[in-house]
């Protein structure tokens, strides 16, 4: 029975049918399956298949976006249940994420967040248009392993440099690994501004995060 539901969850993500993912998650909860198990046995395997197909060139960005949408829909049902049970999602590391000040692009950053979540990271998403000072105080407060900075415009990517500068000035630059991404961002830009890593896409971000936390 539960195997069937897990297969439904996995396939709905791979087939790109977010509504089916949502329904299957409901069904799984109704059948009394623990939310943590639903994530581990149903959702993560699905996201992993999508990720592999993306890396091999079979899937493209639309497939990834739609799978992430399904995953997010499922999490809206699962997160309250996890809270009720006071269960935290087991974590491969914590990542603080946000789009820099002056930039309100959401999708790329959220996609990275979902892929990291699906791969066992605990993700705090600060949203978009995040002031530089907020990144600094949140790093001080939450002590994440990784800080991810997204910028989608050539006019706003300069803010990634500002955040790194502000971390240095606050004396906490060595306390967190900073990774940068977004359409105009390149590896050489990441090096120029002294980031710890750059990834071209959401799957690359997962690998990078794994490397940086040494797992």
């Amino acid at each position: 029975m539960s195997q069937e539901i897990f297969a439904k969850l996995t396939n709905s993500l791979v087939d790109g049918d977010p509504d089916a993912t949502f329904e299957a998650t409901k069904e799984a909860l109704a059948a009394g399956i623990e939310p943590m198990v639903i994530i581990k046995e149903g959702l993560i395997p699905g996201m992993n298949i999508v990720g592999e197909k993306f890396s091999s060139g079979e899937y493209f960005l639309p497939d990834l976006i739609i799978a992430a949408d399904g995953m997010q829909k499922a999490m809206t049902l699962l997160e309250p249940e996890l809270l009720k049970r006071q269960q935290a999602i087991e974590s491969a590391g914590t990542v603080l994420l946000g789009t820099v000040k002056g930039d309100i692009h959401e999708i790329g950053k959220s996609l990275v967040g979902t892929m990291l979540t699906a791969n066992g990271f605990k993700v705090h998403d600060l949203g978009v248009d995040v002031p530089t000072e907020t990144f600094v105080t949140k790093v001080q407060e939450m002590k994440p392993d990784i800080l991810g900075l997204s910028a989608l415009l050539t006019t706003t990517m300069v803010m990634q440099r500002e955040v790194i500068k502000a971390l240095t000035e606050a004396g906490i630059r060595d306390k967190v690994k900073v990774i940068v991404g977004g359409a105009p961002v390149t590896r050489s830009w990441a090096e120029e501004i002294g980031a710890d890593g750059y990834a071209e896409d959401a799957m690359g971000a997962v690998q990078l995060a794994r490397q940086l936390v040494g797992k």
Binding site: P62, I66, D69, I104, I107, V128, D129
Partner: peptide, 17 residues
């Protein structure tokens, strides 16, 4: 403004296929 409209991510992902 669409870029941070709450419905945008969902409508966008629905419109990709």
């Amino acid at each position: 403004e669409l870029s941070n409209h709450p419905k945008f991510p969902d409508e966008f992902s629905k419109s990709l296929f």
